[in-house]
Design a protein around this nucleic acid. Structure first.
Lengths: 127, 127
DNA sequence: TATAATAATAGTAACAATTACTATTATTGA
DNA sequence: TCAATAATAGTAATTGTTACTATTATTATA
């Protein structure tokens, strides 16, 4: 059974994540959610982001940045980070699953997934 | 001109990194280096790891873990992390540069590099 | 080889992101 | 409506890392 209880705060956090493409940090989510729930606490944001990603409703992107970024889209896909402005964009394609087989040939053990991050310059910064 | 001065501490830190395959954290390096330089400070370890990676002598692996890992081998290559024991291993191959062109087709902007991390189970943990 | 300039150090304090704690509030099923 | 308890707000604590400062070590040159 699911011992979870519904909460307005969690709904609002998920709503914020689902309706943006910026792959925000916890702090960004916090400041957005405060527009509708002004006294929500930052701890609540962190706790729910953790809960939602444990349940695979959202994903915590381990991009190697000092601050964690989240994605409201749980479908596996790659990302590009602009090295100039830091913006994170989606690569609209499924991950290349053949890479796992490729890597497995070079590794003693089994491989079942991978993640990748591309670095470049977004069109905004190219202008 | 190079305004850098030689230091025994930096030598020892680099030596530790060059002679292991474990992709250690700063703290691991610290405890190793203390075996030869017992009163070295953790700040010195961090400062030199930063300096060495700025100079591309080592690399800071942005693996998405909460603690940073370092690699004494600056040649670009992928890694596998065992989800059971956390061990990080090398994939002994050059990165697939064709991936950049592939991703660029799906992105508005230019892409010039990428990094990837594979997840699996190492042979030790399979037993 | 002595010296003067300064990079690097040890030790410690500060910092930022995140997590844990606790008393109170909200949700839920009976 | 009520009792059980999940979730909250607010705050304190923790963790990994960086910054600061007085002292020490390295180096180029006299």
């Amino acid at each position: 059974m699911n011992t979870s209880k519904h909460s307005r705060q969690r709904d609002a956090i998920l709503e914020v994540l689902k309706s943006t493409k910026v792959h925000p940090t916890a702090d960004w989510v916090y400041s957005e959610v405060r527009k509708t729930i002004p006294n929500i606490s930052l701890g609540t944001v962190y706790r729910n982001l953790a809960k939602l990603s444990d349940e695979n409703i959202i994903v915590k992107l381990g991009l190697g940045t000092s601050v964690e970024h989240f994605d409201g889209n749980p479908e596996p896909h790659y990302h590009v980070m602009c090295t100039e402005c830091g913006a994170i964009s989606d690569i609209e394609s499924e991950p290349l699953k053949e890479l796992n087989a490729w890597a497995e040939k070079l590794f003693k053990g089994e491989i079942y997934k991978h993640s990748a991050i591309f670095f470049g310059r977004c069109d905004e910064c190219q202008k």
